[in-house]
């Protein structure tokens, strides 16, 4: 029954997103980001940083959809006045949310493929993956952790009055903190410490290492860290969603809160 609900929610979101250009926006912007990053690295004679550009664009796309599309799922329901219907449905809101967020994360992951294609076609880049299995596992865990974090953000956004401002604040500052294109170790210690509390910094380092390094230190421990941070975000998200849902039912201010 839960799987049925999950799939139904995923189907609704998929059909919504493929008809909404704003949900697919990242697919248009990702190739341009790849061009910008690679042009800088090519112009400065740093072919060793190609993986940073390609993987960085993909991670940027994943975080962008987690914040801007998945994070806005409940908010969109509110704007369309369908949030009441979702809340009175006899299934947990968190389950529906997870189903809604999964296809959105798939859109984000497509940016990684796009970036790879742009790098190959426009810059004739050859980027072999040293540890394909590890890279695949790392990517899947990153997507799952992003979906969990998006669940938490979706609940936070509903509690906030200024979602757009928060979404804007969660973009570039977090690209820096997540070390998406440059490693955190290249930043001051305080920034590195703060960034280490963010799952994407672990994911970015691990993905880069799995593509470029001969030996990847403590790979499974790092995967567990990403997964653990994702799980923690999911727990917070589910608790917040329950609180939001209970409060909305108690006050009757579902679309007005």
């Amino acid at each position: 029954m839960s799987t049925h609900v999950l799939l139904a929610a995923a189907k609704v979101q998929w059909h919504t997103s493929i008809r909404a250009p704003e949900h697919l926006l990242v697919l248009a912007t990702a190739p341009l980001f790849t061009l910008i990053f690679l042009s800088v690295f090519r112009d400065t004679g740093r072919p060793d940083l190609v993986a940073n550009a390609v993987l960085g664009t993909g991670l940027l796309g994943i975080w962008f959809v987690a914040v801007n599309v998945a994070g806005g799922v409940i908010q969109n329901e509110r704007w369309m006045s369908t949030l009441e219907l979702v809340l009175v449905a006899p299934r947990p809101l968190a389950l529906i949310m997870c189903g809604r967020i999964l296809p959105v994360m798939l859109i984000g992951s497509l940016t990684l493929g796009e970036s790879w294609i742009v790098a190959t076609l426009a810059f004739d880049v050859d980027l072999p993956v040293r540890h394909p299995l590890l890279a695949l596992v790392a990517l899947l865990v990153t997507l799952a952790a992003s979906a969990c974090t998006a669940t938490m953000l979706a609940a936070l956004f509903v509690m906030s009055r200024n979602t757009e401002m928060i979404q804007a604040a969660l973009s570039y500052p977090f690209y820096v903190l997540g070390g998406l294109v440059f490693p955190l170790s290249s930043l001051p210690d305080q920034v590195e410490f703060t960034g280490r509390l963010f799952y994407l910094s672990w994911a970015a380092d691990l993905l880069r290492d799995s593509v470029t390094r001969g030996t990847v230190d403590n790979a499974w421990g790092r995967i567990a860290t990403v997964a653990g941070m994702g799980a923690a975000a999911l727990v917070i998200g589910v608790l917040l969603l329950r609180k939001v849902s209970d409060r909305a039912r108690a006050t009757g201010a579902v679309s007005l809160a």
């Binding site: 990053f37 800088v40 690295f41 400065t44 004679g45 740093r46 940083l49 940073n52 401002m165 804007a168 604040a169 973009s171 570039y172 500052p173 690209y175 820096v176 294109v181 440059f182 290249s186 930043l187």
Partner: peptide, 23 residues
């Protein structure tokens, strides 16, 4: 607090990218 810091961090992101190249 909101907007200029957001734009500043965007510019900072690219500046750090430039610093990474070491050129």
């Amino acid at each position: 607090v909101g907007w200029v810091i957001r734009l500043g961090s965007q510019a900072l992101f690219f500046v750090l990218l430039g610093r990474l190249t070491g050129a």
